[in-house]
């Protein structure tokens, strides 16, 4: 498969990259690892005029601890994150999620964490070849007015299948978006629009620069369900964070539950998680209840568009959340 034609721009510094982005805006796309972008370009889903490569921008590749935060450069490769002791110990869910991304030989050395967060939403009806799509009317995401995944839907229901984003949202991560002469920090949970066509609240002149993961203690876990263990996207995934009470080490003080691959963005389920406050780490009954509640909430968003039947995926939400909670609790006890 040939790539469509484009002009290649290779800035040497972040400022140069932001300059180019400010000039070309919608016509340009950022190329980091290329494992998502180039595939979409080959399928004709995207035909940018310019690609701005981050190859020379080593300044965006780092993992460091500052105060109570872990700061990760957006161009840090998936392999570096898996290899990091710091992330393994203090942001376990992220480490677990990165291990599941793609396969060692595809994503881990080329793929980046920034690219994983910004990987575009997917749908069985949209992520197809030019030929396949040419046989019928365009869907919302393809510029038309039809949704093949949900009858009579007035909007795109594509699914966010990012492993990294689900884990990071559970960890309460923030992201730094840079543009020429300006920078803003956004809570990852507020980074999503409810529109599957353009799922991210990022401007065309902005670049994802850094991910800030709070590391104030607590234990986290990530679980996912996919057809295959490698080179596959999750069809259900869950990330959880349990924070323990300072006085009593076996009591949950605060919890976060995030369910991924069920909607246009990872779903942050605050109400379901709050039911765990004050519960014991050994209280699997409470975990089960929170997991079932998560399933009920997530089911309202799900659309049959990423494989497996909807009923199965919904039931598995409960299982994935339950397993993640159990794993996080076990980690906290250890």
């Amino acid at each position: 498969m040939r790539l469509p034609r484009f002009d290649y721009l290779g800035p040497d510094t972040l400022d140069e990259a932001l300059d180019l982005l400010a000039t070309h805006r919608e016509e340009a796309k950022i190329l980091a690892g290329g494992t998502d972008l180039l595939v979409r370009m080959k399928k004709g889903l995207l035909t940018p005029k310019f690609l701005i490569s981050l190859k020379a921008l080593n300044e965006l590749s780092y993992i460091k601890k500052e105060n109570d935060c872990i700061k990760i450069g957006a161009r840090t490769s998936i392999a570096d994150i898996i290899a990091s002791d710091l992330i393994q110990k203090q942001a376990r869910a992220l480490s677990q999620a990165c291990e599941k991304i793609g396969a060692v030989t595809i994503q881990h050395y080329r793929g980046t964490i920034g690219g994983n967060i910004l990987q575009n939403n997917r749908c069985h009806h949209y992520n197809q070849s030019d030929f396949h799509r040419s046989g019928r009317q365009a869907c919302h995401k393809d510029g038309g007015k039809i949704c093949y995944a949900r009858d009579a839907s007035d909007r795109c229901n594509s699914t966010c299948q990012s492993d990294g984003a689900t884990a990071l949202m559970a960890l309460g991560a923030k992201i730094v978006l840079a543009s020429k002469g300006h920078e803003r920090t956004v809570d990852l949970a507020n980074f999503y629009t409810t529109d599957g066509i353009m799922p991210f609240a990022i401007e065309s002149y902005e670049l994802l620069k850094e991910i800030i993961v709070p590391a104030e203690g607590g234990s986290s876990a990530y679980q996912r369900l996919a057809y295959r263990s490698a080179i596959d996207y999750p069809i259900v995934c869950a990330g959880v964070l349990l924070k323990l009470s300072a006085s009593q080490k076996n009591i949950i003080d605060d919890a976060r539950i995030v369910v991924g691959a069920m909607s246009r963005s990872p779903l942050f389920l605050a109400r379901e998680a709050s039911s765990l406050k004050g519960k014991k780490l050994t209280d699997t009954e409470a975990f089960k209840k929170a997991a079932d509640a998560s399933m009920n909430s997530a089911a309202a968003f799900a659309v049959h568009n990423v494989g497996a039947t909807l009923e199965y995926r919904c039931v598995m939400v409960s299982e994935m959340v339950f397993r993640a909670l159990k794993s996080a609790a076990q980690d906290a006890k250890a």
Binding site: Y8, L38, S53, V104, T105, I106, Y109
Partner: peptide, 9 residues
């Protein structure tokens, strides 16, 4: 490091 040459410019 192993990479995919079909996805590397």
């Amino acid at each position: 490091k192993p990479v995919r040459s079909c996805l590397t410019l």
